[in-house]
Nucleic acid binder design. Structure first.
Lengths: 350, 350
DNA sequence: CGCCTTCGTGACAGCGCTTTCACATGAGTG
DNA sequence: CACTCATGTGAAAGCGCTGTCACGAAGGCG
């Protein structure tokens, strides 16, 4: 910066003012400084700047993985937003328990970001408390944490509407397929199960625990086993609501393999509306991770800017809507429309 | 840090030494300092540290998008590696031309990272030159740039082997489907087309320009059009080699829709081996973006550490292998094995 | 017993910026 | 014409660290 100052024949103060766009610089000086900066290929060091301002110009995100449709999509809408605000994006990927423990032990983000976005973690109370005294706004994304800024999808309503869709098609035996990860913990929201139950109750359909099964995500065999359990019930389901598209597709894959026609014999409904759903013409409940990323980013920027006067009590919770997207894997329950008659939704067999 | 020093009854120098793990600290002092740091929840400010050391402890990555299987997978293997080395990961997503221009104009990464990984861009010479005087090691990933450190897949060999696989199955009319992005530029490597040509030449099969067509990625309709062109040739192909799995799947989707059996009537081969390929039982040429991310990360760390003595002339180019994965969408050309006879690969119709 | 090492520690300068304050200039006002 | 006052600019302090240097203490050696 000293070089630029010298070349432009001004002081470093003026260079700093110019480069930050402060208004108290006369036009000709401004022009000289900008010219000099360009010629010297100068860029301010954020490090040095943040040392004195106390702001890092960085937003940190904590994600369980970068390798998923959801994260890719969310970050992809978050990144441009931050860039437009002149912020950098710092990614902490915490794929396993060891890393997780280490992160919460050392909190490497401390003092190295202006805000933290925590994606899709089921945090313990201690972990949340730890983040509380991180000294920066923390926004919880794709999860609801009481009393903390959160951005999330209304899972209950989504599952409620999804289940209603199946009920409206005449289904009464509707299975729900939960997801567990490798370590055996259910990680998607309990809200979806809740919405499913709520819809059945509201329709007067008795809840049957046999119809709620679990499967490991990304494991076709596990899906086959869950399916086997359902199909060998005394009264098998005529429709299956999977908590995630990926699981729904695994179910369809297995059903087709077993020559069980979808949706004629059994309807399948997913949740997410990821690209895979389109490829398989899967009916699903859509959520928008890119909206989530954008909302979370905007909330973060607001909180950063208002950290001066926290009196501003604007909305700190953003609840995003879902919507049911009927495609070709849900159809009226067999028999309702008479045998041999074309179902409402033309099954587009692949 | 001053607080920690006071609490431990030592100077800030000693605290700094302790926290950086330098050996010249006596055990009891070390213990006192560590205790004090823990109690005060202290974390050093990278900003301040980097101001004096000149190293930022950050690796920047430049990616066209975060929302793709390839990037997710590559970054997912890069991130843990950097974390283990105590480095932060800074992401610059450049989704369009405007952002791209802005990035190369201002080079925001300058002075704010120790190395830059540039993923999957077809850079102009000016852009490359611009990165040259960024003052940090720049590693080109998933692309080959002469004279610069690069990590890439051997596309030519991959396409060569893929095409040979089809030739070995008796195919002689083999189409190649290229990919263009929305703006009309072919963005995957020319190497794949080259490998395809090479294999045909080597097998004495004449090249036919009519068999090389283009399609937009992520556009089923566009794939249908390309397919239509091929199927209406006087002598249509018996096999199609798509430059990307996604395109291959779009072709299969359209073929099934048109009741053209895959692979009995036409074989389809992809390139990438992304998860979609598994879902569609697609034969493909596999590459490993996670290996690429890892190699790129290791190369970056090496270059950062050797920036002192650049005399070290270790390998600056890493070429990764591909491998052909035959699944259910490639089979011997019809007629070769006699009508009605089972093809070598049992078609696993979905 | 004096000298030279080695080891552990503290004082202090300075990294590249921002920000406060003081100062010069010229315009506006009575 | 003297005066405020707004405006643009520079000098200098200091943000929180690291790294150099100097220094005292302890140990080894002749």
């Amino acid at each position: 910066m000293a070089d630029v100052a010298e070349r432009a024949g001004v002081s470093t103060s003026t260079v700093s003012r110019t480069l930050r766009g402060l208004s108290t610089v006369s036009p000709d000086v401004r022009a000289r400084v900008e010219k000099a900066a360009r010629e010297l290929n100068f860029a301010v060091s954020r490090q040095a700047a943040s040392l004195v301002t106390g702001r890092t110009g960085t937003v940190a995100v904590l994600v369980p993985t970068l390798n998923s449709w959801f994260m890719g999509s969310a970050l992809s809408s978050l990144a441009p937003l931050l860039r437009a605000a002149g912020m950098q994006l710092n990614v902490y990927e915490i794929p396993d328990l060891t890393e997780r423990t280490a992160f919460f032990e050392h909190l490497p983000a401390r003092r190295n970001a202006d805000a933290l976005l925590v994606f899709s973690f089921d945090l313990t109370d201690e972990e949340t408390a730890r983040l509380d005294d991180l000294g920066m706004p923390v926004i919880y994304v794709s999860q609801h944490v009481d009393g903390r800024p959160s951005v999330y999808v209304d899972d209950v309503a989504g599952a409620l509407h999804g289940t209603r869709h199946l009920l409206n098609l005449g289904h009464r035996r509707i299975a729900f397929v939960q997801t567990v990860d490798a370590s055996g913990f259910s990680f998607s929201s309990k809200g979806r199960l809740l919405g499913y139950r709520q819809a059945l109750t509201e329709a007067g359909v008795p809840l049957d625990q046999d119809l709620v099964v679990s499967t490991r995500v990304g494991d076709k065999r596990s899906a086959a086993e869950a399916l086997g359990g359902l199909l060998s019930l005394r009264e098998p389901p005529t429709a299956v609501f999977a908590e995630m598209d990926e699981v729904a597709v695994a179910l369809i894959w297995n059903l087709r393999k077993s020559q069980i026609p979808v949706p004629e014999r059994i309807s399948v409904l997913g949740f997410d509306d990821q690209p895979l759903a389109d490829w398989f013409d899967l009916s699903t409940v859509a959520q928008s991770p890119s909206d989530m990323g954008r909302e979370a980013g905007e909330l973060a920027l607001r909180l950063i800017n208002d950290s001066g006067d926290p009196g501003q009590d604007h909305e700190r919770h953003v609840v995003l809507p879902t919507c049911v997207i009927p495609r070709a894997t849900t159809a009226p329950v067999a028999g309702t429309w008479g045998e041999g008659e074309d179902p409402l939704v033309t099954p587009d067999r692949l």
